[in-house]
Design a protein around this nucleic acid. Structure first.
Length: 509
RNA sequence: GGUGGGGUGGCCGAGUGGUGAGGCAGCGGCCUGCAAAGCCGUAUACGCGGGUUCGAUUCCCGUCCCCACCUCCA
């Protein structure tokens, strides 16, 4: 089979793909340009992106970020790269300690193990699992490594020491045990977000503590009275715990080396988090990230979704409204750097679009497995290579669906199968093929349902043959009312369970 | 005060100096006993005011509005 007008990767699906040089271009926050992406090491991409601070349940904003980077990784892999991906878990943090201490963590149920108060590490782990559940539910693949902050105290100490030795960090003069990064000692500070220290707004609650400059930030936070002993580690500067920014610098370079290809995260992490990471690592002598990628925020009717505003929507709430695949489609459909606005009804639109694609794949599903290679329309590859222009890529996908449907209508099964295979390949890159879908029915129930429906369909077919359409329609109405959708095809009636109906039923229950 | 992003048809959402992506919804047609699915066709657009240009939604200037970051935040 020769590919016409397509980018073909002549490999078996399980083999490494060697492609023509990929002309991937990515927008880099630091240079504010779309730049040609060439990895440090040919054929390999090292990627670090910020995961969650596990102080609460995930909302769709968190998942959107994960979906964006999942698509990036999938496209890099589809382009033939071996991607070494790392995503951190921040499992020690002010808020985690606060929530634990106050025992007001959402969803906390007292138990025999933790009757009165949930220890901070138990709380963190519980929410880490909640994040995993959300990612899994939407087909976000796990990164190669997923390090936790508390497991890398040694690496953080080493980094602090290097910064002190280089004159860019200092122990607090007030004896608090804090260690700060000296912003004024690093002239490049602000280079990621193009800000000058002197232009920055004074923090409203600027408490200089032992700082030389109010913008200096903590690398190490000294133990305070009331902090749990389990949340403090010995260090050359006294007992304490790591600062948030430090952990990412320490962990990214541990797993990816002192210079790596891509550092990602949400737009809201640019400052101060990523700015501080960059300052620390660069001041310590690391090359650090070559590209900085930031995904846009999810808004709810125009306003940023966040815990503090209280306008969050959880993945679970979305999954009550639509199938996982539709939720994933919704979260991935806008360009990753764009703001993605959620409003009621948005998921139904996504559901309809996914339905259209899947209906085509079902219609064309006949012997597709014989296509052993992966193939994308050239326009799809161009769109993806253009800073992951997923909206444009989806337009290509839908064009393939249309072309395939047209082929089916004209009886050209061969072309239809080719289009269907292309569509499948594109769906895979977008992560839409391995979103887990709940089994609507299986096993004995499936068999029983199949027989019952088949019986009714035979009855309907007989009625239609007798041209007794009122009887035929009555049968169909019965099935529809029960959530079974009927389509008449040249090969006879085809039935399927109404997914939308099952989703709304799940909500009622 | 500083730094960015954006305002596209009923909705979502790409893009471009000149033949109006794509999806959802609507309308008309084909197909169907009727539907469903599918296909074909179709209307409605680039916040506002100037400027450059043969021609701007696309470039420039001004202006209004929205959003994000400068504090924990994907």
């Amino acid at each position: 089979m020769r590919a016409r007008g397509g980018v073909t990767c002549a490999r078996r699906r399980d083999q490494r793909c060697k492609l023509a040089p990929v002309a991937l271009r990515l927008f880099d926050t630091k240079t504010r340009q779309v730049r040609d992406f060439q990895p440090l090491e040919p054929g390999k991409v090292s990627l670090y992106y910020c995961g969650a601070t596990v102080q609460g349940r995930p909302h769709v904003g968190h998942v959107r970020s994960a979906v964006a980077f999942d698509i990036l990784i999938r496209w890099l892999e589809a382009s033939g790269y071996d991607v070494l991906s790392v995503r951190n878990v921040t499992d020690i943090d002010d808020k985690i300690l606060e929530k634990s201490a106050a025992s007001y963590a959402e969803d906390f149920e007292p138990s025999a193990d933790y009757p009165a108060q949930e220890p901070w590490f138990a709380l963190a782990y519980r929410f880490e699992q909640a994040f995993h559940a959300a990612y899994d539910a939407l087909g976000v693949r796990r990164p190669r490594y997923e390090p936790r902050a508390t497991g890398h105290i040694t690496e953080m100490h080493q980094l602090i020491q290097r910064l002190i030795d280089a004159g860019h960090a200092y122990p607090a003069v007030d004896g608090s045990g804090d260690v700060y990064f000296d912003v004024r000692s690093w002239p490049s500070y602000g280079e990621l977000t193009h800000q000058r220290v002197d232009d920055m707004q004074d923090a409203p609650d600027a408490d200089p503590r032992g700082k030389r400059d109010p913008r200096d930030f903590a690398l190490w936070k000294g133990h305070k009275d009331g902090d749990p002993e389990t949340a403090s580690w010995d260090s050359p500067w006294g007992r304490g715990r790591p600062g948030w920014h430090l952990e990412c610098s320490a962990m990214s370079t541990k797993y990816l080396g002192s210079t790596f290809d891509i550092h990602g995260g949400g737009l809201d992490l640019r400052f101060p988090h990523h700015e501080n990471e960059l300052a620390q690592s660069a001041a310590a002598g690391d090359g650090f990230a070559r590209f900085w990628l930031h995904n846009g925020m999810v808004t709810y009717e125009g306003e940023k979704m966040s815990k503090s505003v209280g306008n969050t929507i959880s993945p679970e709430e979305m999954l009550e409204q639509a199938r996982p695949k539709a939720v994933r489609y919704f979260l991935g459909q806008a360009h990753y750097r764009s703001q993605l606005d959620y409003k009621p009804g948005a998921l139904q639109e996504a559901e309809a679009a996914v339905e259209r694609i899947e209906t085509f794949l079902q219609r064309a599903d006949d012997g597709m497995s014989r296509f052993g290679w992966t193939r994308y329309p050239e326009a799809f590859a161009e769109a993806m290579n253009d800073d992951l222009n997923v909206p444009a890529a989806l337009a290509v996908l839908h064009e393939s669906v249309r072309a395939g449907n047209t082929a089916l209508d004209s009886g050209d099964a061969e072309v239809a199968r080719e289009r269907a295979w292309e569509v499948s390949c594109m769906m895979e890159v977008l992560g839409l093929t391995d979103v887990p879908e709940p089994d609507l029915v299986s096993g004995p129930a499936e068999q029983a349902l199949g027989q019952l429906v088949a019986t009714l369909l035979r009855e309907r077919a007989a009625a239609r043959a007798d041209r007794d359409f009122s009887r035929a329609d009555a049968v169909r109405d019965q099935l529809v009312a029960a959530g079974v959708v009927i389509e008449d095809t040249p090969q006879g009636a085809r039935w399927s369970l109404s997914r939308a109906a099952s989703a709304s039923q799940a909500k009622e229950n």
